[in-house]
Simulated assay, not measured.
Amino acid sequence: MITERAEALHHTAGRESGKRVAATPIATLPLQLTINGEERALQVEPWTTLLDLLREKLDLTGSKKGCDHGQCGACTVLIDGKRINSCLKLAVTLDGAEITTIEGLGQPGNLHQLQAAFIEHDAFQCGYCTPGQICSAQGLINEGHAHSRAEVREQMSGNLCRCGAYTNIADAVIEVLDRRANGEKQE
C-alpha cells in the first residue's frame, strides 16, 4: 500500500513538474559589452554570472572557476580597468562595461609585460591561478595601490595559489612596477 501510494505520488509529481518546466519560457535580457576590445551584443539569462558568460557562451576559458564563491581569485578579470571576481558578478549588471580577460592582455608572440614577467620569474607552477593572478596584478597597477613588495602581497592576497608561488608572483609584479616607475611604456 505504501509503495503504491509513493509510486503514484512520484508519477503525479513528475507530470506536474514536467508541465511547469515545459510551460515556462526562459527569459533573456539584452546586454552590450566590450570584451577584450570587441563590441558584443548579447542575450543572457538574468542569473548568468560574468564568469559563466565568458567561459560557457563566449569560449573565453582563461578565467577559471575555482571556488565559485569569490574566495580564490582564479576568476579575476578587469571591468573598466578594475579587478573583480567574475564568479560573483551577474552579467546583466554590467551593461556598457569594458571587460578585459587574460585573453585580452596579450597573445602568443606578443606577451603583455606581466605575462612576460611571470614567465621570467617562474611565477607559476600548475598555472590554474595564473590568469586571475595576472589580471589582478594589472588591476592593482591600474588602481595605483601597490608601490612596495608588502603592498603587492597585501593587494594580491585575494588570489590564492595552491602551488605556493607567492614570492615569484610578487617578484614579477614588482619588476613591472619598477619598469613603470622608470618610465618604460606599459602595454
Rank of each mutant, 00 (worst) to 15 (best):
E175T: 09
G14R: 10
P131N: 08
P131K: 04
W47F: 10
G183Y: 09
I141F: 04
T101D: 01
G104T: 11
S63W: 03
Q71N: 08
L160S: 05
L58H: 06
I102T: 00
T130P: 01
Q43S: 15
E56D: 15
Q115V: 07
E4R: 15
D80E: 07
K57Y: 09
G66C: 02
G73D: 01
E39I: 06
D80N: 15
C87E: 01
V92Y: 02
C67S: 06
E120D: 15
K185D: 05
S136A: 15
C126I: 14
G158D: 00
P30Q: 14
M1C: 02
E187V: 15
P30M: 10
I119Y: 04
L51K: 09
N182D: 14
A150G: 03
V176A: 04
L140Q: 02
G104N: 09
Q133H: 03
K19F: 11
V21I: 15
L53M: 09
K82L: 13
I102M: 15
A23D: 14
A74P: 00
P25K: 11
A6P: 00
G132S: 09
R162L: 11
R179D: 13
T49D: 04
L60C: 12
E45H: 13
D122K: 11
G37D: 09
T100W: 01
M1N: 08
H11Y: 06
C135Q: 03
N168Q: 15
H121F: 13
T130K: 03
N168V: 00
